[in-house]
Design a protein around this nucleic acid. Structure first.
Length: 269
DNA sequence: AACCAGATCAACCGCTCCATT
DNA sequence: CAATGGAGCGGTTGATCTGGT
């Protein structure tokens, strides 16, 4: 059944790249650009798998790579992004110019994990380790679950009629944490600070055609629909319909939406 | 100097996603 | 609509480096 292998394994080199191979790849991409990776090795005269060429180029040879140690700012940004996105290294890398997903992944596993552990935080959930254990059982899920999507509260009488179906990760909006120990409260405070500093303008597009907002959509301007749904309405919608979560993180050049959202929110290009 | 353990990072592997046919 | 193939992603591996004994 399977598909043909991505390359002829019998005739490909493996392991570390030689200078000559690097040079061949660089020369080829300089003159032809990044085209079809599958056919590139042959065209470039390399006995390598296309995937291997792609990886080598992206992770090591690309001219715009920033080599060297990560700065404190980059550290913090990675932690914040990871708390929101989980192990979506490519998305995280997209926010760090000159850094690759592989580099960030390695850095996370070797440095940041330890850093968070030393702060008493679970690297996966970004919650205090005690709380993570207490929340326990199946609670070892991805960090992305940290984002509070608690529509049960929304279904209750709304605190404010202006509540929107928009996730802006400010302190007020992250109500899921409930740590109580001193250690927890310290790291909780840290977490709050982190989240306060970063507003990625996450938005939730309910997959209903009932709303037709008219503003443009950018990371900074995730405007509510003209007549914002009440929290109760949002909660009701969430309970009665499938919810489509489109994260408008603001860095996708294509800004693609799922088909449902695209159809529902007609103001998107 | 020799050995070992832990840390680091480049590269591989298998899988999924998505466009095309 | 299903099959196919290429690209990309995330997890894992293994070679190399570094620091401690």
């Amino acid at each position: 059944m399977g598909r043909s292998p991505c390359c002829e394994k019998a005739h490909t080199n493996k392991g570390a790249w030689t200078k000559e191979e690097d040079q061949r790849l660089i020369n080829y991409i300089r003159s032809h650009g990044e085209g079809c990776w599958r056919s590139l090795p042959k065209a470039a005269g390399l006995l390598r798998c296309g995937k291997s060429c792609r990886l080598r180029w992206i992770n090591y040879l690309r001219p715009d790579l920033k080599r060297g140690n990560f700065t404190e700012e980059e550290d913090d940004l990675i932690i914040k992004l990871h708390s929101l996105l989980g192990n979506k290294w490519s998305l995280i890398a997209a926010r760090l110019p000159g850094r690759t997903d592989n580099e960030i992944k390695n850095y996370w596993n070797t440095h940041i994990k330890r850093k968070l552990l030393s702060r008493g935080l679970d690297p996966q959930t970004h919650r205090p380790i005690n709380a993570a254990a207490a929340a326990g059982g199946g609670g070892g899920g991805s960090a992305a679950k940290d984002i509070c999507l608690d529509f049960r509260n929304a279904a209750a009488p709304a605190k404010s009629s202006n509540e929107k179906a928009t996730l802006s990760l400010s302190q007020e909006d992250t109500k899921c944490n409930s740590g109580t120990t001193t250690e927890e409260s310290q790291s909780h405070q840290q977490q709050k600070d982190d989240q306060t500093a970063l507003n990625l303008g996450l938005s939730i597009g309910l997959s209903t055609a009932a709303e037709t907002p008219s503003s443009s959509n950018t990371a900074e301007s995730v405007a509510p629909p003209q007549a914002p749904p009440t929290a109760a309405a949002v909660g009701y919608a969430a309970m009665t319909q499938s919810v489509c979560l489109c994260w408008q993180l603001g860095w996708s050049p294509s800004g693609k939406l799922c088909t449902k959202c695209h159809n529902s929110y007609k103001w998107f290009p």
